[in-house]
């Protein structure tokens, strides 16, 4: 009995001065590990602005195509290129890519696949129309021109 009493006399407070450090560690851990974009962009992306934006309900139906001038011009040239997933592709390969993306969707949703075209401001309509022709060939006709909001006066 006497033994127990002695023990209770020792201070029970836990030192809390290290708590901020723990929070710091957590913060740093999440800062380093969070990846906002799963893909490395190989092309320049300055998304144009528009006012009539719509939001799609089902995000799983969206596949992304990035179009713009390659960042590494010495390797890929300075003409606008199309990036799908992690690689630059040429327009004729788009049909195959769409079919791959469509196969990933559940069967009931395959008709509703939407291609979000993230196009750089400086691209001309020529490459865009080539891509759209290929999308028509692939029968992926729902296209979303990705753009950021613009404040209208």
């Amino acid at each position: 009995m006497a033994k127990f009493k002695k023990k209770t006399n020792t201070s029970t407070s836990i030192p809390t001065s290290a708590l901020p450090d723990i929070i710091f560690m957590l913060l740093f851990f999440f800062m380093v590990t969070t990846v906002l974009r799963e893909q490395d962009l190989l092309v320049e992306q300055k998304i144009p602005q528009a006012s009539q934006l719509q939001k799609l309900q089902k995000k799983t139906l969206i596949s992304y195509l990035y179009i713009g001038k390659p960042k590494n011009t010495s390797l890929y040239g300075s003409e606008p290129r199309v990036q799908a997933n992690d690689v630059l592709i040429s327009p004729p390969e788009i049909v195959q890519w769409v079919n791959q993306e469509r196969d990933l969707l559940p069967e009931s949703d395959r008709g509703f696949i939407t291609i979000s075209m993230k196009v750089d401001k400086d691209v001309k309509m020529g490459p865009i129309s080539d891509v759209q022709t290929e999308l028509r060939n692939a029968d992926a006709r729902r296209v979303l021109y990705a753009s950021t909001g613009k404040v209208m006066n």
Partner: peptide, 20 residues
């Protein structure tokens, strides 16, 4: 970091292309 991170949004202008 909360303020500066931009989370990619899926907003845009929807267009339905004509059939092939």
């Amino acid at each position: 970091f909360l303020v500066t991170t931009t989370i990619a949004s899926d907003k845009g202008i929807l267009n339905i292309l004509p059939p092939k």
